[in-house]
Amino acid sequence: MLLELKDVTSFYGKTPILQNIDVGVEDGHCLAVLGRNGVGKTTLVRTIMGLTTRMTGEMHIAGEEVTNSQTHERSAAGVGYIPQGRGILPKFTVKENILLGTFARADNQRSIPDMCLELFPYLAENLDKRAGTLSGGQQQQLAIARALATDPKILLLDEPTEGIQPNIVQEIEATILRLNKEVGLTLVLTEQHIRVARELSHAFVIMDNGRIAERGVIGELTDEIVDKYLTL
């Protein structure tokens, strides 16, 4: 297991938002985290990053125990984070945003990895543009490039296709698939679109009310389960 959560309960303030979560992702696999709005998908991702008030239980990233680690230590342990809403720093240029990722690198290298420029030619041509002026799809590319600049072992993608034009969704999907299949990155992907999850993932968990309701390999994600937990 490259990422493993054992009996994790996560709090905002004093309120437990997630309870008794057990999740693991195999090296090189993609785990889809599914569920309706407000069931705790984003909180799960934020818990992995250490962005909730506190957590109990046990968590490992690439064999390293990070239960009590702060956010910056978790990112240095090998997690690249692509947050919901993308979290681009609007006053920074495209270049500065990508370089921001390099602060999590173990090798202290402060340059843009070639892979980022090769995957996203638009960014390569607009390195000095203010990130705040980019479109939603371009910002999503930038968020992925920034996460790749951390030299991650795992990518956390929180609703990467949300709020993006349909023609760009295909492109982002293809990029994610390539990162998993060709580059060999382990992925945790929260999704509302079942089609996207089925195409990209090896395994799934379905969340409901802050707990994990169902889990399995992606072939076991039957229409019956989809109807029960995911149809509005």
Binding site: H72, S75, Y81, P83, L89, F103, T150
Partner: peptide, 10 residues
Amino acid sequence: QNREMAASFG
């Protein structure tokens, strides 16, 4: 600009 994002990148 964004404390959480900065922390998330090391």
